[in-house]
C-alpha cells in the first residue's frame, strides 16, 4: 500500500481548473518531487492532501486513510511547510514553536533546540523582527519539530540562502533516513533532482509524467549555444535530437538530448569563438512537452 495515494483526484474552483484526474502513488520512505510551472496544480494537490480544500471528485489517502474523513489523525503525523509563512503578532520564536508543539502528543523541546541550532536561529527573538529567510527557518522547525512520518513541502526553499538550502536539504535527507516520506513540490528542476528519488511532472492540472530522477536525467535536455568564425551548415555536422534550433548568421542555439560526448566531439570540429552548454530549465522542458502534444 502506498503511503500517499490519489485516485482521479480532481478539483475545480468554480469553473476554473485546479487539477484533473491526478493519480499519484508515493511509497513509504520515498522523497518524491512534484514539479511544474506556476499554476499547474502543485499547491492544489498538496492542499487537497492536507484537507485545506475539498476535492470536486476522486479521492486521496495518506496512511491508507481518507484525507478528509481522517484529517485530524493524519495531521498528527504530518509536517507541512508552505511556500510563504505567516505568524501571530508579537510572539517570540520559542512561543510560536511551543504552541505548535503543544498540539502533538510528545515532548518536542529538545528537537526544537537541535533544529534551531542547525539552522542558526535565535529562539528568543520576536518573529516580527526576523528577516524573511529567518521566518522561513521558523517554518521549517515548526514543520519538523514533531518528527512527522510524512513531510509535505510546497515550494519550500524561497527566501533561504544557498547555504541554508543545503542545510535544509541535509535535514530532509536525515528525516528521510529516519523513515519519513517526503513530497517536495517545486518549479526548480535542479533542487528536485538534487534530493528526490522519483518525480512527477504536472502541467495544466494533469500529471504528464512520473519517473525516477535517474531516468529523467538520462533524458535531460541541454541548452547549447555557440558562435563560430564563419556560418556553419548544421545538417552537415551530424547532430541528432535537436529542437528549437535558432541560427542567426554565425550564432547558433538549440536544445540537445543525447550523449554529451557526441555533442562535444561535434563541437570540437568547429572553429568556435564561444560556446555555452547548460541544463535546460524547466520552462524549456515544458515547451518540449507542449510540442510533443501538438
Amino acid at each position: 500500500m502506498s503511503i500517499i495515494e490519489t485516485k482521479q483526484l480532481t478539483k475545480y474552483y468554480g469553473k476554473s481548473r485546479g487539477i484533473i484526474g491526478v493519480d499519484l502513488a508515493i511509497e513509504e520512505g520515498e522523497i518524491f518531487g512534484f514539479i511544474g510551472p506556476n499554476g499547474a496544480g502543485k499547491s492544489t494537490t498538496i492542499r487537497l492532501l492536507l484537507s485545506l480544500i475539498h476535492p470536486t471528485s476522486g479521492s486521496a489517502t495518506i496512511f491508507g486513510k481518507d484525507v478528509t474523513v481522517y484529517a485530524k489523525e493524519i495531521h498528527q503525523e504530518i509536517g507541512y511547510l508552505p511556500s510563504e509563512v505567516f505568524y501571530y503578532d508579537n510572539m517570540k520564536v520559542k512561543d510560536l514553536l511551543n504552541y505548535s508543539a503543544s498540539f502533538y502528543k510528545k515532548d518536542c523541546s529538545q528537537r526544537i533546540k537541535d533544529l534551531a541550532k542547525r539552522l542558526d536561529l535565535d529562539l528568543n527573538r520576536k518573529i516580527d523582527d526576523l528577516s524573511y529567510g529567518n521566518k522561513k527557518k521558523v517554518g521549517i522547525i515548526q514543520g519538523l519539530l514533531h518528527s512527522p512520518k510524512v513531510i509535505l513541502l510546497d515550494e519550500p526553499t524561497g527566501g533561504l540562502d544557498p547555504l541554508m538550502q543545503n542545510i535544509f536539504f541535509d535535514i530532509l535527507a536525515e528525516e528521510n533516513k529516519r523513515g519519513a516520506t517526503v513530497l517536495f513540490s517545486s518549479h526548480i528542476l535542479s533542487e528536485v533532482q538534487k534530493l528526490c528519488h522519483r518525480v512527477a511532472i504536472i502541467k495544466d492540472g494533469k500529471i504528464v509524467r512520473v519517473d525516477t530522477v535517474q531516468a529523467m536525467k538520462e533524458e535531460a535536455y541541454l541548452k547549447v549555444s555557440f558562435e563560430t568564425k564563419a556560418p556553419v551548415d548544421l545538417s552537415k555536422i551530424g547532430f541528432d535530437h535537436l529542437t528549437q534550433v535558432v541560427q542567426n548568421g554565425t550564432e547558433v542555439s538549440f536544445l540537445y538530448k543525447g550523449d554529451l560526448n557526441v555533442l562535444m566531439g561535434a563541437l570540437a570540429k568547429l572553429d568556435l569563438v564561444r560556446v555555452n552548454v547548460q541544463e535546460a530549465d524547466l520552462e524549456e522542458i515544458f515547451l518540449h512537452y507542449y510540442q510533443k502534444e501538438a
Binding site: A71, H75, F86, S100
Partner: peptide
C-alpha cells in the same frame, strides 16, 4: 494573519 494553513494542519478537527 494568513495563518489558516497553520491552524488547520494541526492534529485537531476544524
Amino acid at each position: 494573519l494568513k495563518m489558516m494553513d497553520f491552524i488547520l494542519t494541526r492534529p485537531m478537527s476544524r
